[in-house]
Design a protein around this nucleic acid. Structure first.
Length: 422
RNA sequence: CGGAAUGUGGUAUAGUGGUAUUACUCACGCUUCGGGUGCGUGUAAUCCGGGUUCGAUUCCCGGCAUUCCGACCA
């Protein structure tokens, strides 16, 4: 992509009303734009990253049998009343159409997916089923905050599983737990799977996937040795206590919840009469589980965790570009021309196998180019200038490395290709 | 939802009872060229409603918005 044509308007200063690091850097870098509190647009640059997160989630959900679909965000009141949530869910945006019919703007989709299932004749032979979607969700938060971390409108993956038995549901819960860990690892996030409350769904425990960071809203207590962990809101232990499993000293950490998996059981299938025919011919409510993951929140969290004072340090799989090619203007026009010719050659060579941002701007100072490159945070950077040209070399560095390495263009192309793949 | 603060060009800010400062951005010209180069010219702003006043961006009241703290957060 040519930087001169790309819709990347970087800013020197962060908006005064954004305090969180993720919002500041993402807005300065031209990734997102704030419409109003808790509602952000994903600009072309941010959209690239969002799509990369989406792809990782899709791959991992498909790998555990998930089938992707899409449900309406606008849902009739009557459906919400069936499971008794129309009045009790205070984050539900409610609205009326011209004829006075009432609708809720989906904060989650248990009702809709359960409705889909009950309308079909399901045999125990059809189960289990794993259905998921990635969609914009709406929650009437009293106080949205921290940029992408808590919005009123945000993007979430929600998966729902249907089982013929509780044992089968439990088995899948563990499978989903593993898959979640994989997704977050690929996104460059460390997570702790912590026990949390089942919320309004059940008395069963749920698991939250928490990324430890100072900017987190949650507080978790965990054992670094054996992995025992709980959200402080349900924990009966505190920092310094011995781990109930292995006796190691427990520690507390602030963290961001990036995913959550729940046991639903028959919380929805019973009241909504979503049944399957079991082996003995009897109708039984389906046993359900649900599995959520915030895409936009993952994006924000990645920035919270991976940045320095100059900009974003994207992990390899999420970086909007595998490599950023930065030719520098020289005082000698002829040399400048040569620099750009060389840069363009490498640009074309690399473009075939990876995503490349080419800083083709010829009237921008070196400092400005570096500042932009650091802010945007492509995974690797190639610099070509009068200096490197003299030695018939190029400079290559990853965003998180301090020093660049001099090498020939041939070597550089090879190294960039290798790095982009692992 | 309770409390607090703030609202001035696209962004960040200064100041004022007589319509407004500076920087960045943007346009043009020159300059510079390995970490946001310097200079000149130009474009561009007082959240909304009401009150006080000859006159309000400024003072008062109300609203709205944003941010922060708290409560809340399937």
């Amino acid at each position: 992509m040519l930087q001169s044509k790309a819709f990347i308007k970087t800013k020197k200063e962060a908006p005064k009303d954004e305090v969180s690091v993720n919002a500041q850097l993402l807005m300065r870098g031209g990734y997102i734009d704030k419409l109003t509190s808790g509602m952000y647009s994903f600009l072309p640059l941010g959209f690239i990253v969002l799509k990369k997160i989406e792809r990782i989630i899709r791959e991992e959900m498909n790998a555990i049998g998930g089938q992707e679909m899409l449900m309406p965000a606008l849902q009739p009141k009557e459906l919400w009343e069936e499971a008794g949530r129309w009045d009790s869910m205070d984050v539900l945006y409610k609205l009326k159409d011209q004829q006075g019919r009432e609708f809720g703007l989906g904060p989650t989709h248990e009702e809709v997916i359960t409705d889909i299932m009950r309308k079909r004749t399901i045999s125990y032979k059809d189960l289990p089923l794993y259905l998921y979607q990635m969609q914009t969700k709406f929650r009437d938060e009293l106080r949205s905050k921290s940029g992408l971390l808590r919005g009123r409108e945000f993007i979430m993956k929600d998966m729902y599983s249907f089982h013929a038995s509780e044992e089968d549901r439990k088995k899948y819960y563990e499978i989903a737990k593993k898959a979640y860990g994989k997704v977050f690892r690929r996104c460059g996030l460390t997570t702790i799977a912590v026990e949390a409350s089942g919320g309004s769904f059940s008395k069963e425990v749920s698991h939250e996937f928490q990324t430890p960071t100072e900017s987190g809203e949650d507080l978790v207590i965990h054992c670094e040795k054996c992995g025992w962990a709980k959200n402080m809101e349900v924990a009966d232990k505190k920092a310094g206590d011995p781990c109930p499993l292995c006796g190691n000293i427990l520690t507390e950490a602030k963290s961001i919840e990036v995913g959550n998996i729940f046991t639903l059981g028959t919380r929805f299938s019973s009241p909504m009469n979503a049944v399957f025919t079991d082996k003995d011919g009897s109708a039984k409510p389906m046993i359900m589980g649900c599995y959520g993951m915030g895409l936009s929140r993952i994006l924000g969290t990645v920035v919270e965790v991976n940045h320095d004072d100059r900009g974003i340090l994207w992990p390899r799989e999420l970086a909007p570009f595998d490599v950023h090619i930065v030719p520098l203007v020289s005082k000698d026009e002829k040399i400048t021309k040569q620099v750009f010719v060389e840069a363009e050659k490498i640009y074309h060579a690399l473009q075939e196998t990876m995503t490349v941002l080419y800083d083709d701007r010829d009237s921008v100072s070196a400092g400005e180019k570096f500042a932009d490159a650091d802010l945007i945070g492509a995974y690797q950077r190639i610099v070509i200038s009068e200096k490197t040209l003299k030695e018939r070399k190029i400079e290559l560095k990853k965003r998180d490395e301090e020093k660049a390495t001099l090498m020939t263009a041939q070597q550089g192309i090879k190294a960039v290709r290798v790095a982009a793949k692992k």
